[in-house]
């Protein structure tokens, strides 16, 4: 069976690429420390030596639209073009081409449906910065095949938080039952408190540092029960109007498992948002 060698949860700040590549007067004062943190985080994936990456993220109204909106969607394609015009325009992100691990996509779809998730799928998916940002930060050589999994954290009505956790648990079961000798890492990105298009956006910190502090503890401790006890679709409006992206962190807690403390935890308090980076090595792997 395949081996789950790393579980990684991260924010996906679209400005990292531009900040980290800027030079001279264009380089922001926070860039050097940010790069140092990212390179340290990257090492947690590198040392797991994965063959395949399962990438959990969310389309930001690029290919997926209100006329046909899936809740959970798995890409099944040999290749994925990446990044959209408005991401190049606003964030300076490059166009990219990623390779797909189609047999694992097929396995996740078939077995995932049989496990209780009626997953949507796409045979021609252009992926956006929720998946390319962690490629840029964690695997910039972009040399590994991926299985993209999109969640709807954007276009209500949304699935309940507990459903994200359940999907995470199911993804782990599917990977660990995949008849293959591949080493698989799961990388999922979301947000802590975040405001986009509202009065609390682009402040000196994230919109709700108190929520961020609690959220980091829930994730670092694998405290799914405590998190589910406080987080609901309604409560997530309070820390910031885009905070439902936190449910992708909850999905990753489901992959890692109840009570599983993260082996690597780091944060970086930036303008606009708190960055947060977590790695688990399942089954005592590289601890």
């Amino acid at each position: 069976m395949a081996e789950l060698v790393a579980v990684i949860a991260s924010t996906h700040h679209p400005f990292y690429y531009r900040a980290s590549t800027a030079t001279g007067e264009d380089r922001p004062p926070f860039a050097d420390e940010w790069v140092r943190k990212i390179e340290s985080f990257r090492e947690t994936l590198t040392r797991a030596n994965p063959d395949v990456l399962v990438m959990v993220g969310s389309d930001h109204f690029h290919q997926l639209w209100f006329d046909n909106m899936p809740q959970f969607l798995v890409g099944k394609a040999p290749f994925y073009d990446a990044n959209f015009y408005n991401e190049q325009r606003e964030f300076g992100l490059p166009t990219m081409l990623l390779t797909g691990q189609e047999d694992l996509s097929a396995y996740v779809l078939r077995e995932g449906m049989d496990a209780g998730f009626d997953l949507a799928y796409s045979n021609e998916l252009r992926i956006d910065h929720s998946i390319t940002c962690p490629i840029i930060t964690l695997r910039p050589q972009n040399d590994l095949p991926i299985v993209p999994i999109y969640t709807n954290i954007f276009a209500p009505p949304l699935p309940q938080p507990t459903r994200f956790v359940q999907l995470g648990r199911t993804i782990r079961q599917l990977i660990e039952s995949w008849p293959s000798n591949q080493r698989v890492a799961v990388i999922g990105t979301g947000h802590l408190s975040l405001e986009l298009g509202g009065p609390r956006q682009f402040g000196p910190h994230g919109p709700d540092p108190e929520f961020d502090h609690k959220a980091v503890r829930w994730i670092a401790d694998g405290d799914i029960e405590g998190c589910l006890g406080e987080v609901s679709l309604e409560s997530l409006h309070l820390p910031g109007n885009a905070t439902h992206g936190f449910m992708d962190f909850m999905l990753m807690m489901g992959v890692a498992g109840e009570g599983e403390k993260a082996d690597y935890v780091d944060t970086y308090d930036l303008f606009h948002t708190m960055e947060a980076y977590f790695t688990w090595y399942p089954n005592g792997g590289l601890r």
Partner: peptide, 26 residues
Amino acid sequence: PFLTLTLFIGLFERDYEPMGFQTEYA
């Protein structure tokens, strides 16, 4: 709000200092 913000950054960010339009929007 995400759709509005993204489009309006594309429309008007160029007329402001870096991050100036985003803070004016807030």
